[in-house]
Amino acid sequence: MPDIVAPQLTGADIRRGFWRILPISLFVFVFGLAFGVAALQSNMANVEVMLMSITVFAGTVQFAVLDMWGAQVPILPLLLTTLAINSRMLLMGASLYPWLRLLPVRRRYASLITLSDANWAMTLNDLQQGRNNLGTLVGGGIALWTCWQAGTLTGLLLGSGIKDPKSIGLDMVMGCFMLSMVMVGKRNLRKSLAWGLSAIAAYAAYRWLPPNTHVIVGALAGGTVGIFWLETPKQ
């Protein structure tokens, strides 16, 4: 592990991060569009849909919630679903902790407000490779958030758009992106062992445990490799 020093975060870093994540954000725009169109068929008013996109900002959760929405909402199942689907964010935040802890508390948490899959994955890769700034996390988060809002709004207003996101391969965006992130970093035996264990555990959890537990189970299984195989700092 390289020495960990406090990451930098200037306005210029944030702007660079914004432009860096914008291409992948365009996919998020299309997802937002699909969500807006789907929301039109639900019992939610347009204002409520937008308010949810703005404050909740979590694609999979919002899609899942549409099905549960009615004159009465099962509040506890709804909140538990929200928590379960996005429990991966807890782990993502924890993975950035070694760097974020070196920031003042306010800055630390402010930079997590738009934490999302794409900006997290790129930031983690950057930090692990010694590129020590949080511009991608914050600026990228702003790009993702903006595109999600723009997509939702466009879907609500147009009422139609991409009828079937699957037909143009959009269901594979997340898969292809995560795969590219897995392949971008440096590999060694310790890492490969952790990832292999994570894959097996995640698969088993996906098959046999309650829905949405696979990320936590897989990540914790991978983490145990770290408990027994300590990474020694580079000289």
Binding site: S95, M174, G175, A199, A202, Y206, G218, G222, G223, G226
Partner: peptide
């Protein structure tokens, strides 16, 4: 710290696995 380090990349893998499992041949 070593646990966090090993866990962090494992999140990516764990997110990826069901997507690959559920994907059709085109995916």
């Amino acid at each position: 710290m070593s646990f966090i380090d090993a866990m962090s990349g494992s999140v990516l893998v764990a997110v990826l696995v069901p997507i690959a499992v559920e994907a059709d041949m085109a995916g």
